[in-house]
C-alpha cells in the first residue's frame, strides 16, 4: 500500500548568526533534521514535542510552504515543492491547513462566509456565485456555525467560532490531507474539547487524512492513529497512541508521559535536567543525552538510529528491540 503522504529524509536548516552583532559566527539552525514518516489515506499522524522542536516547520514543509534543505515530500505520488507554480496551486486543493491562531488567520475586513468560500472562488472560478453560496452554507452547517453568522466579521465571533470558520475554509474543497498546527492551543480549555470533537466527527464523515501537531499529549492521543514524538528536529519514538502512552520506550517520551497528571493515582514524575533544547547547538551523539537520566558514554558519541520493529520505532541506544521491550 502506498501512503497518501510520504516524507523521506526531510531536513530544513536555516543559516543564522550567533549573538555578537555583525561579526557573530555563522551557524546553522537545524529546525528539522532528517524526518521519515508516512500517512496512509484517511489516517491521522500525531506529532508531539516541546516548542522549538520543529513541529511547525514540519507542517510548512509538508504543505510545500517552505522548501526543504534536503529530502522530499511526496503527496499522492507527486513531489511537493515550494515553487508557487500551477502544480503547486493544484496541490492546494487537496492539502489544507488549520492554523493555531484563528483570529490572525482570518481577514478582519471580510465577512466569514466569503472567507469560507474563498478556496472555492480560487480553485473553481467558473462556479456560479449561487452554487458557491450553497456550498458555503453546507460547510457552515457541517462545522456547527449558524446561518446567522454568515455576514459577521471575525472579531464579532468567539474564539471557538473563529476556529470553526478556519476549519470550514480548510474543508471547502474536500481535501485529502489536513495539516492541523496546534489547532486548539489558542482556545479556552472548555472550547478545546468541542473543536477536537468536531474535527474527529468531520474526519469520520469525510475521511481526510491528517497531520495533527500539538505540544499536548492528551490532545494528540485523542486525535491520532499513530503518534510520533519529536525532539530537536528528529523523531525519537513512534507507535500506536496507546502503546506510546502506556509503555513509552524513549527516556524523553517517558518524561513527557510522566508529566501528564493522572487522576486518582500518584505516579513518579521524571523531571528533565539541563538546558532546554536549542536547535542551533545540537549536542553531539544522541541529541537528548545532556538531559537524559540514563545516558551512557556511547550516547555522547553516536547518534542513535530510529529502529523500526513491528509497528514501534525508537531512536535510543538503550532500546534494542522496541517490540520486545513493549511486551515486557
Amino acid at each position: 500500500m502506498t501512503a497518501l503522504l510520504s516524507v523521506r529524509g526531510l531536513k530544513r536548516h536555516y543559516p543564522v548568526r550567533r549573538p555578537g552583532g555583525l561579526f557573530g559566527r555563522p551557524a546553522t539552525l537545524k529546525a528539522v533534521d532528517g524526518l521519515d514518516f508516512d500517512i496512509p489515506a484517511g489516517r491521522t499522524l500525531g506529532l508531539v514535542g516541546e516548542s522549538g522542536c520543529g513541529k511547525s516547520t514540519t507542517a510548512r514543509l509538508v504543505l510545500g510552504l517552505v522548501p526543504p534543505s534536503a529530502g522530499e515530500v511526496r503527496f499522492d505520488g507527486g513531489l511537493v515543492t515550494a515553487k508557487h507554480d500551477a502544480a503547486w496551486r493544484r496541490q492546494r486543493r487537496r492539502m489544507q491547513m488549520v492554523y493555531q491562531d484563528p483570529l490572525g488567520a482570518l481577514d478582519r475586513r471580510m465577512p466569514v462566509a466569503e472567507q469560507i468560500g474563498e478556496p472555492i472562488a480560487i480553485h473553481e472560478p467558473g462556479l456560479p456565485a449561487a452554487e458557491r453560496a450553497e456550498r458555503v452554507a453546507e460547510l457552515m452547517a457541517q462545522v456547527g456555525l449558524g446561518a446567522s453568522m454568515a455576514q459577521r466579521y471575525p472579531h464579532e465571533l468567539s474564539g471557538g467560532q473563529r476556529q470553526r470558520v478556519v476549519i470550514a475554509r480548510a474543508l471547502a474543497l474536500d481535501p485529502a490531507l489536513l495539516v492541523c498546527d496546534e489547532p486548539v492551543s489558542a482556545l479556552d480549555v472548555s472550547i478545546q474539547a468541542q473543536v477536537l470533537n468536531l474535527l474527529d466527527d468531520l474526519r469520520a464523515r469525510t475521511g481526510f487524512a491528517a497531520l495533527f501537531i500539538s505540544h499536548d499529549l492528551k490532545v494528540v492521543r485523542q486525535m491520532s492513529d499513530r503518534v510520533a514524538v519529536m525532539y530537536l528536529g528528529r523523531i525519537v519514538e513512534e507507535g500506536a497512541p496507546e502503546e506510546v502512552f502506556h509503555a513509552p520506550l524513549h527516556p524523553y517520551t517517558q518524561a513527557l508521559v510522566s508529566a501528564i497528571p493522572v487522576p486518582g493515582r500518584r505516579r513518579e514524575r521524571i523531571v528533565l535536567e539541563g538546558d532546554p533544547p536549542n536547535p542551533v547547538d545540537v549536542p553531539a551523539g544522541c541529541p537528548f543525552h545532556p538531559r537524559c537520566p540514563v545516558a551512557t558514554a556511547r550516547c555522547t558519541r553516536e547518534v542513535p538510529r530510529l529502529e523500526r520493529d513491528a509497528g514501534r520505532a525508537v531512536a535510543c541506544h538503550l532500546v534494542t528491540a522496541p517490540a520486545a521491550h513493549a511486551a515486557e
Partner: peptide, 13 residues
C-alpha cells in the same frame, strides 16, 4: 500577518 499567509497558503494569486 496571518491572514495574508493563510490566503497565500490557499493557493491565491
Amino acid at each position: 500577518q496571518g491572514y495574508a499567509t493563510a490566503v497565500r497558503d490557499l493557493g491565491a494569486t
